[in-house]
Write a protein that binds this DNA or RNA. Structure first.
Ligand SMILES: Nc1ccn([C@H]2C[C@H](O)[C@@H](COP(=O)(O)OP(=O)(O)OP(=O)(O)O)O2)c(=O)n1
Ligand SMILES: [Mg+2]
Length: 752
DNA sequence: ATCCTCCCCTAC
DNA sequence: TAAGGTAGGGGAGGAT
């Protein structure tokens, strides 16, 4: 099963020297199978890597004579790259004898971060692969990933700092509370200034690009820059229009981490009840622990002394007012709001300043003629607000505008989800590109679940899909104007295995029926988290991992076996320690599991290149990691599709994954053949029928003469589908059916 | 009523 | 070049 043009060794040309494992000819085959090529004779012009296990003295000497030497790499590089499903950096595999040679430093060049494998010579940047072919380097450089994942790590800091034996505030309930809010001033920017003292007093913005014309986003900026209107989230080019003297500064992620730890250790000296908000911000409950102003000044002095950065503090009797006080305190100050002052404070406050009222809500309030909290007070009733914002949100705005907030400062909060996503640099050509990226995201999710010692039962796929008429995004490699879609599966037992998660995510991707070329973002989220790890889940986990078992089937098998109350499992085997009962799985899950069985059946049946005749380009069978690996352990027996396809058309329609593929098939098909297929398949293969319906509708919308059968043919088919689906399933069409036709449009808040 | 899924909004 | 993530709150609307 070659990966064709998408092979991981695309652009790699090897020459094998001496005796190796795998052998000469095995390596040749492996390269052919994974998109690379092989030279029998060495040529420094063509060969990109010499593969060699043992370098003789003579060979070493010869190598040293080369002015522009080709890297000499151990065969494990090839083997392990294949196992990893991607081109690994070869630097670690450069032979030691070469590595140690002085003057050869050009050799094991560290791969450029954005370049997936570190191929030394002109990598063919050809069509096919995703532009962002290295998920790791994205995460390494993403500031939002950095601040987003920091909270999980803060938990460790908090736990460790418990040994400091911090003072405990009065127990909750005893009113009134004394709450402090702490926030580092222009955090990233002030670190930049600290690292580069010459920036002191200048307008500074932190972002990746130095280029004035760049589309890099500003992460943080100094207060000098803010005077010009520069803000976090702006593009550097726009910021420079506002402030020509703006100085760009880079990120210092390790420093942020160190400083954040200092912040939390400092805070925990003052109170045991610290609620982390973010990398640079937290609440403290200091009820009964002393004078708030003194505590704040103590924190500020200690922190400044240890880090050279300033924090500002707000004090009041609740979290809301403490936070609002901090915004008045900034930069480098303390501000307190007493109970009797609070009304006066809120009166003139813009609604946008209420935490929880963002861009969208403030716009809606503006339309209602509300600009300040005072305006909100004059609204006739809370009910009116709740009508337009919903019960909770309406009440929140109503209360917050009056300075009312009954939340308690909580030092421990339970996580409800773990996820990873990428919405930048995503440009796929083939479905396998998306599958590959999902695999990496699943690994990332697995790492985080394991680190936290948790598993989850619900797997959600998040997808950003380019809007039909979206203009090219202004941001370099940005997602632009998208529809956001998500689909989820709930398993019967909690999972943390990357392989399993990836499989489910891929199945969900297929369910969404997206054209891979339109995908602009992908994410995986795990919810319904379980702290405990039942033994049965462990057993199934082991099997799923080693045998590449599909998780959902695993679930189904367990449930099915229990339902039959029969003895040994019919297939797939190895199940002891049953813990899942059919009655534990709700009806929706059962229905979904059944429909997934169908999907999986088709996925596993051999998919030769049915579309080549219909679609103008090659389509390989879908494959993922498990397919390429060795095959220990039991495997689900391959299933043949139950109705034997009667014609190429039927086969193509039955095996198409996406409505655009179906559309391509329809273009050359005859109406009567399609009708016949619908009649035959409507009971057995609803999935394909839905897909057909979407394809028909999109073709009908796409103008006349799009198909050989013409408009009447399409109309006939659509009518037939509606009727027979209704007959067979006697109900309304599932909501899904409408989706491919026109994804619900929201006038996105995207920064166009 | 309550739950579930999918979606939007918000904050850093 | 550039790195538009992560998590929680909560609403709409359908199923139970
Ligand atoms: N859109 C944003 C917002 C914040 N951050 C990062 C950089 C900030 O330095 C840090 C903390 O966010 P704050 O909202 O606290 O902003 P600052 O600390 O920079 O400024 P302030 O003085 O207003 O707190 O998070 C970011 O990368 N992108
Ligand atoms: Mg800050």
């Amino acid at each position: 099963a070659g990966a064709g043009e998408g092979g991981i060794f695309r652009g790699v040309v090897i020459h094998v020297n001496g005796y190796t494992t795998p052998s000469h000819s095995e390596l040749k085959d492996l390269m052919a199978e994974h998109g690379g090529s092989f030279e029998n004779y060495f040529s420094s012009a063509r060969v990109t890597h010499v593969i060699c296990a043992n370098l003789t003295d003579a060979k070493l000497k010869q190598h040293q004579k080369e002015k522009n030497p080709v890297p000499v790499v151990h065969p494990n590089w090839v083997v392990e790259s294949i196992r990893a499903g991607r081109l690994l950096p070869f630097a670690k595999y450069v032979l030691d004898r070469i590595r140690k040679e002085p003057g050869q430093s050009v050799l094991p060049v560290a791969p450029r971060p954005a370049a997936g494998g570190g191929t030394p010579k002109k990598r063919s940047r050809a069509e096919g692969g995703d532009l962002l072919n290295n998920v790791d380097s994205f995460f390494k450089n993403s500031r939002l990933h950095f601040i987003g994942s920091w909270k999980a790590k803060i938990e460790d800091v908090m736990a460790a700092a418990a040994s400091l034996d911090p003072p405990k505030p009065d127990p909750p309930g005893a009113a009134p509370r004394r709450v402090v809010h702490v926030d580092i001033d222009c955090f990233f920017a002030s670190v930049a200034v600290r690292e580069n003292p010459s920036l002191e007093g200048k307008p500074v913005a932190v972002c990746h690009s130095e280029s004035t014309k760049g589309t890099a986003e500003i992460s943080s900026c100094s207060y000098e820059a803010r005077k010009f209107g520069v803000r976090a989230g702006m593009r550097i080019s726009d910021a420079r229009d506002l402030c020509p003297s703006l100085v760009q500064a880079p990120y210092y992620f390790e420093k942020y981490q160190e400083i954040s730890v200092v912040l939390y250790r400092t805070l925990l000296r003052s109170s045991a009840r610290v609620q982390p908000v973010s990398i640079d911000e937290a609440y403290l409950d200091i009820t009964g622990l002393g004078d708030p102003r003194e505590i704040c000044e103590d924190i500020r002095a200690r922190f400044l002394g240890e880090t050279g950065c300033t924090v500002s503090c707000g004090c009041s009797h609740n979290m809301l007012l403490a936070k609002i006080a901090t915004s008045r305190a900034k930069p480098n100050g303390v501000f307190a709001i007493s109970s009797d002052e609070s009304e006066a404070f809120m009166a003139d406050l813009a609604v946008r300043e209420i935490p929880g009222v963002g861009w969208k809500s403030s716009r809606r309030l503006e339309e209602m003629g509300v600009a300040t909290c005072g305006d909100l007070w004059r609204l006739s009733s809370k009910t009116a607000l709740q009508k337009s914002f919903g019960a909770k949100q309406g009440e929140l705005i109503w209360d917050y505008s009056r300075g009312i907030d009954s939340r308690e400062v909580k030092s421990e909060t339970k996580r409800h989800s773990v996820g990873a996503e990428i919405n930048w640099g995503i440009r796929f050509e083939h479905r396998e590109d998306a599958v590959r990226t999902l695999g990496k995201l699943a690994e990332e999710v697995e790492r985080r679940l394991r680190r936290a010692g948790i598993r989850g039962r619900c797997i959600t796929l998040k997808l950003k899909l380019r809007k039909p008429n979206a203009p090219p995004p202004p941001k370099f490699l940005g997602h632009g104007w998208c529809d956001n879609l998500s689909r989820s599966v709930t398993l019967a037992s909690a999972a943390d295995d990357a392989g399993l998660i990836a499989r489910e995510a891929v199945a969900l991707l297929l369910r969404l029926d997206a054209d891979p070329r339109e995908i602009r973002g992908l994410g995986i989220q795990i919810t319904k988290l379980d702290e405990g790890q039942p033994a049965a889940a462990d057993a199934s986990e082991g099997r799923a991992r080693s045998g590449g078992q599909p998780g959902i089937l695993d679930t189904f098998m367990k449930a099915g076996r229990r339902a039959e109350a029969a003895g040994p499992s019919s297939s797939g085997g190895g199940g002891r320690g049953e813990s899942v009962r059919l009655s534990d799985i709700d009806v929706n899950e059962q229905k979904y599991i059944l429909s997934m069985i169908q999907v999986r059946q088709r996925e596993q049946s051999k998919r030769k290149h049915f579309f080549e005749g219909f679609v103008g380009r090659e389509r390989g069978a879908a494959r993922w990691r498990g397919d390429a690996e060795g095959d220990p352990g039991p495997r689900e027996p391959p299933r043949e599709p139950s109705p034997e396809p009667g014609s190429a058309l039927a086969a193509a329609l039955g095996q198409a994954r996406f409505s655009h593929e179906v559309a391509a098939v329809l273009a050359g098909a005859e109406a009567k053949d399609v009708v016949e297929w619908v009649l035959r398949s409507v009971e057995s293969d609803l999935e394909s029928i839905w897909r057909l319906l979407r394809a028909v509708r999109s073709l009908r919308g796409g103008g006349p003469e799009a198909t050989a059968m013409g408009a009447e043919g399409l109309e006939e088919i659509e009518g037939l589908i509606s009727k027979s689906v209704e007959n067979v399933y006697k109900g309304t069409l599932p909501r899904d059916v409408c989706r491919g036709v026109g994804v619900e449009c929201d006038d996105s808040h995207d920064k166009v």
